[in-house]
Structure formats: C-alpha cells, structure tokens
Amino acid sequence: MIEVRDLTHRYGDSGGNAGAPGNDTGAEAGPFALRDLSIQIPDGEFLVLAGANGSGKSTLVRHFNGLLTPDEGEVLVDDTPVGDDLVAARTRVGMVFQEPRDCFVAATVARDVAFGPENLGLPREEIDRRVERALAAVNMAGRGDERLDRLSGGEQERVAVAGALAMDPAHLVLDEPFTGLDESARESVLAHLLELHRDGTGIVLVTHDLRDVLEHADRLVVLADGEIAVDAPPSADLDAIDDLPVRRPERC
C-alpha cells in the first residue's frame, strides 16, 4: 500500500525542495506543486492519475519512491516512511519515466534491464531469471542482445517497463507512457500493462489522455493545481471531469 499523508511540495529553484524545512539556502521557494494532498493506493489497484500539465501528477508519483522529499507531510510504502527505507520503497514501487531514453543506462536491452537487480546485489542466476521474466512480460523475450538505440519508440517503452519490472515491484508507476507512441505501439504497451495488472501488479498510470485506459482502471484521480479534484471509480464520476483539461474517452 502506498499512503500519502498531507503532502505539500513546492517547486524549488534547484529542481525541488528549495522551500523545505532545514533547507533554507536563501533560494526562492517556488509555487506549490502539491498542497496538503492525501491519498491511499492499495496493492493491486489500477489507478489512473490524470490532470493538466503542471497539475502536480509527476511530482506526486516521484514522492512514491523517494525521488523527491516532502516539504510537509509524509509518504509511506507498506507502512514505512519512504525516507526511512529508500531501498524498500524503490523495490516496491517501480518507476517508468515519460521519456524511455532517460531510463537507459546500458547499450543493450538485457544489460539495461539487469541494472536494477544488480543494484539489489542479487546473485547472477537470479538476475538472469528476472531479466528473462521481465522481458517475456513485455513480449521482448529473446531480444536481450539488441541495441536499445535501434528499437522503435514502443519497444523502448516496453524495455523501460521491463527495467522497472525486474525490480519485482508491487506497484508500477508510469509517467505519461504513451507520449510519442503511435496507435499500435500505444495498444501494445497498454495490453502488456493490463496483463501485468491481471497478474497482481498495481498500476499507477499518469496521463492527461484518458482514451482507452479509463475502462480498465479501478479508480480515477484527477489533480488540479496540486490538489485532488476527483477521486472516484471511473464509472461513477465522469461528469466531474467535464471542466478539467484532460482528454476524455470519446464514448463518454
């Protein structure tokens, strides 16, 4: 379970936390990215986190595994504050970034997917097993020796997902995973995410485009100006997003 309690975060001059207590450097504290926000995400839930650009979506999910430090409030993963055990938080919450190339640290598929398990200090056999399993989960089995820069955008996105999966996370957080993908690549990535969800992995999908994804979600959370504007099952509350700048499914 990911639990966020009264989280406040201000944009800082140096990329975050300039306004944090104990970090009074004289740099200007920026505007609020998140304001007094609380949310609980149970294991196995498929949550769609929507909102306009600058609404605080990406900032919120970066708190789930301690990439940012709260200015106020706290974030817990399995009842442990994230800051108390970063390794546990980053193992339990896998993160896939908006631009897959940002995630890559190696030249070939398998070497990159192995990066996380290597950091956990696992035996080589276990690392190989995890790499194979993660690649199979995104339909990239047998392609471990291919160069990353020769893959298509959709394939790169799937490798980035595999890189996070190799950590064996309970929650997979994807920040705008469909950006720049064509329709077939988008469908392919989404199909693999749904399969992971069926197998028990919790999915937190950050997007401003609700097409195709809403029908599969357990819950829709919409952020506006750093606060939760909507938190409801997708079927119940679609009227509430009429005034919010997100792309709605056409059928609604």
């Binding site: 980053r90 993160m95 970034f97 631009e99 940002d102 640290v105 990066f115 950091n119 890189g163």
Partner: peptide
Amino acid sequence: ADLARTREAMAARLGDRR
C-alpha cells in the same frame, strides 16, 4: 536537465547504491 533526468532514473532503480 538531461543529466538530471538520467540520474533520477538511475536512482529510481537504486543506481545510487553503486
């Protein structure tokens, strides 16, 4: 900014333990 994103992505997979 590119390098900052790369470092952040590495940290998300515990690269900062290396």
